[in-house]
Design a protein around this nucleic acid. Structure first.
Length: 578
RNA sequence: GCGCCUGUGGCUCAGUUGGAUAGAGCAACGGACUUCUAAUCCGUAGGUCGGGGGUUCGAAUCCCUCCAGGCGCGCCA
């Protein structure tokens, strides 16, 4: 990476200056440069405090002597001491030229690295149940999963996106039972209802009927036994209703741009788990209790005991996950396996990974729980049984319709097709950005007013910045950057923009390392703000000279590449007009 | 009760992994559109970084403690 080499050259220069001035080794690898709080103070700062300890000299003294000693170079124009800091100023024109040319050359690959080349990362996300439609919690999960996958892909990993569907269990049988009793044979086609919503309707119906008739619980259990014993009629209904649900899911996924390379089904994998547990029992890692249950004692590892097979031999949640984990490794030989699952399951995953380790799987150390916080509504927690869930499809519809209104307030020249398309892109841009801009670790306070906002620190603000650039580039006509003279660039706004663009790839890398797309959101906002300031002060199409005009067009073309990169990583469309 | 996570202007969040005067957006107030898209920009006001101890040249960041909130503590998933 050109920018990293540039950074390395600078740390080497500081290292050399220290060596010459103080006869002291201070390897550039261990040197971390900071950004001064005010741009007037410089572009990079080297804190001299750690050095002060070694040299037993006051930091301002060290900074001053280093500032005098620093030779001017193609990278650094001048150095200045400021308190205990050695502040460095980039060679502006060289810096801008290097940054922009690099971006232009890399295009879509700007910000990518090769650090993951040759390694496979598996990422499991979404993982819905087949008894109800997707809700707001799934939307956070989906956007987080997609964005993380995109980030890892940009780092050069081979990324396998996996959906693990919870398609069996008593909760599935509940909607089946309600349908058997009161469904009257209706279908998605006959009712014009999306299949997942139809199944969800019967799940809710079960819960309401249960209040009048507690015996239904037992009937659902009985249906589960029939399912497990392979009763053909039950299986046939199960397959039929699940297929409805998948059709509904596929619609929502495809609308959001959520994609998977592989679907796993717990109705397949729970058997593998059972086998694995019995093997572990043979090896003495687990033990059989008097009542017949198989258990593991993890009290020596800071956990409790955990049942892995019930007395009647049936599998529990942990059993399935053990089986699925192993199957994933057999299928893909991953170096890392990520689980995008809410933080309410933190304990479960700690235990899961510990058991895999105790079973002797080398790859267990590559398993990571990408834990994220809950989405909280103003009224409190979402409860599917109480109907306080925010339905994913409804929310997407609402945002689209609000975006349509917002467009019509601003312009009336879109044809119907483009209006629909842009409304969808902008509505989703708002929602996805809203969900991604918070650190995954934290809970999200879902404030409907802010989630649907198109102004301020929002997705549409980034999209707008991008669209505006495209508009200017269109007006500029045929763009030829063959004879470029970038030396015309160098004022405060242009330089600030270049600095943001220069820093962006490092932010992407950090975001990928931390599985934290919020970093990309923040970086994109900074670039967009810098761009808006630039517009306010400088003209592009009516620049003072042809050279400057071309140079500025080149500059905003590079900014557009950065904004589009950010949006793409976040799974958000970058419209050319809006 | 035990365990994990969180606590930063009225609200929602950042904070370069221990560094300079703690930054954005929303809301409030005051400005800027015959000028490349005002989904924008500029300004004003608003902070004992939950409280208290400590560690050191230096703490929102690390340690201890207390307080508040979230989640978990099924042979549910």
């Amino acid at each position: 990476m050109v920018f990293q080499e540039h950074q390395k050259k600078i740390t080497e220069q500081i290292s050399t200056a220290i060596k010459e001035e103080f006869q002291q080794d201070f390897p550039h690898e261990s040197m971390r440069l900071e950004t001064p709080p005010d741009q007037e103070m410089g572009d990079l700062a080297f804190p001299c405090f750690p050095l002060a300890k070694i040299l037993k000299l006051p930091p301002p003294k060290i900074a001053a002597r280093l500032a005098d000693r620093m030779a001017s170079s193609p990278e650094i124009e001048k150095a200045a001491a400021h308190g205990g800091y050695l502040n460095l100023f980039y060679n502006k024109s060289g810096f801008i030229e290097m940054t922009l040319r690099e971006i232009h050359e890399k295009r879509d690959a700007y910000g990518n690295t090769a650090i993951g080349n040759g390694q496979t990362i598996l990422i499991e996300y979404s993982s819905p149940n087949t008894n109800k439609p997707l809700h707001l919690g799934h939307l956070r999960n989906n956007t987080l999963g997609m964005a993380s996958a995109n980030l890892l892909d940009a780092m050069g990993y081979r990324v396998i996106k996996v959906n693990l569907v919870n398609d069996r269990g008593v909760h599935i049988c509940k909607s089946m039972l309600a349908y058997q009793k009161w469904g009257g044979g209706e279908t998605p086609e006959s009712t014009g209802t999306k299949g997942d919503h139809l199944a969800g309707k019967y799940y809710v119906l079960f819960e309401t009927k249960l209040k009048e008739n507690p015996d239904l619980e037992e009937e659902a259990q009985a249906l589960l036994h029939k399912w497990e014993s392979g009763d053909e009629e039950t299986l046939s209904l199960w397959r039929r209703m699940n297929e409805w649900v998948y059709q509904g899911f596929r619609k929502t996924y495809s609308r959001m741009g959520t994609a998977f390379d592989k679907w796993y089904f717990e109705s397949d994998t729970y058997r593998l788990g059972k086998k694995l547990v019995l093997e572990g029992l043979g090896k003495g890692i687990f033990y059989r209790r008097e009542d017949g249950a198989v258990e593991i004692d993890l009290t020596g590892h800071g956990f409790d005991k955990k049942v892995l097979l019930r007395p009647n031999g049936t599998a529990v949640y942990m059993t399935q996950d053990l089986g699925t984990a192993k199957l994933k490794y057999e299928d893909y030989a991953f170096s890392r396996s990520l689980y995008v699952v809410a933080n309410e399951q933190d304990y479960h995953f700690n235990v899961l990974f510990k058991i895999l380790e105790l079973l002797g799987f080398e790859w267990a150390k590559g398993c990571v729980h990408l834990s994220y916080g809950m989405v909280e509504l103003p009224e409190g927690k979402m409860k599917s049984r109480e109907g306080t869930v925010v339905d994913a499809d409804d929310l997407l519809d609402e945002l689209k319709s609000l975006a349509r209104e917002a467009i019509l307030e601003r312009r009336s020249d879109f044809e119907e097709g483009e209006l629909e398309r842009r409304a969808e892109e902008i509505g989703q841009g708002a929602l996805k950005f809203y969900l991604l801009k918070v650190n995954p670790r934290n809970n999200i306070q879902f404030n409907p007013k802010e989630a649907i906002a198109f102004e301020g620190a929002t997705g549409p603000y980034i999209q707008y910045s991008h669209a505006r650039i495209q508009s200017i580039l269109r007006k500029a006509g045929d763009l030829s950057f063959d004879s470029l003279d970038l030396s015309a660039l160098g004022n405060k706004e242009e330089f600030s923009l270049a600095r943001q663009l220069y820093n962006f790839p490092m932010e992407i890398q950090k975001a990928a390392e931390e599985y934290n797309p919020a970093r990309v959101c923040e970086a994109a906002l900074q670039i967009a703000r810098e761009l808006s300031k630039f517009y306010k002060e400088r003209q592009v199409l009516k620049a003072e000279s042809d050279e400057l005009r071309t140079a500025r067009l080149f500059l905003i073309h590079c900014v557009a590449l950065a904004l589009k990169k950010a949006l793409t990583l976040l799974g958000i469309q970058a419209p050319d007009r809006m």
